[in-house]
Amino acid sequence: MAYDWTALGREIRNSRIAQGMTQDDLAAAARVSRASLQNLERGAVRTRVPTSLRAVTDALGWAPTAALSILQPDADIKVAPQPQEPTSAFDLPLRVQQELHDGPLLDSTVIDLSDSGARMVVVVKGKSDATPEELRQALLAWVKAQQVLDTLGESAAG
């Protein structure tokens, strides 16, 4: 059975635009190259389903079978490409959500920026494939950075 790459590309583009994302935003959220995303949106005919497709549809919040239902409209799969309900209580950009999801949590802090209550939230994450030594080095770098951030918070609040 032939896949309808043009229809899939149109749906990806429409969904991206409806969510207020640029190609760069979606490519970053999906962790694929912009060229891969452009090929998908353009409906470039392929001999196999690219691995980037799942990353893009996940970043758009589509149901797992949505892309296949578009690629094979005559198949017995009837799932519309509607974004799934967010799993987070926070309305964060997709890029931030992805960063929060990937890698081990090393530390976090909240820095008061002013008497008006403005705050900065810092979350420190390690690489997902980091060795124990790399994580130790990352924590040491964070301790130095935290000292600088603390002085910024003190001067902003003071």
Rank of each mutant, 00 (worst) to 15 (best):
W5V: 03
T6D: 11
G9Q: 07
R10G: 01
I12M: 05
I12R: 01
G20S: 10
T22S: 12
D25N: 06
A27D: 14
A27N: 04
A29M: 02
A29S: 07
A29G: 03
A30S: 06
R34D: 12
S36E: 13
S36D: 10
L40W: 00
E41F: 03
V45N: 12
V45K: 06
R46T: 05
T47W: 15
R48P: 09
R48I: 05
R48G: 08
V49T: 13
V49Q: 14
V49C: 11
P50D: 06
T51Y: 09
T51V: 04
D58F: 04
A59P: 01
G61T: 13
G61I: 11
W62T: 02
A63D: 12
P64Q: 10
P64L: 05
A66T: 03
A66K: 07
A67S: 12
I70C: 13
L71R: 09
D74N: 08
K78H: 14
E85N: 14
E85K: 11
F90C: 02
F90R: 01
L94S: 13
V96M: 13
E99S: 05
L100M: 01
H101T: 08
D102R: 04
D102L: 04
G103R: 00
L105D: 15
D112P: 08
D112N: 09
S114A: 06
D115F: 07
D115Y: 07
S116V: 14
G117Q: 09
G117K: 04
G117T: 03
A118E: 11
V121E: 14
V124F: 01
K127L: 10
A130F: 04
E134W: 10
L135S: 08
R136K: 13
Q137V: 03
A138N: 15
L140W: 12
W142C: 02
K144P: 15
K144L: 14
Q147K: 13
Q147S: 09
S155P: 05
A156M: 10
G158C: 06
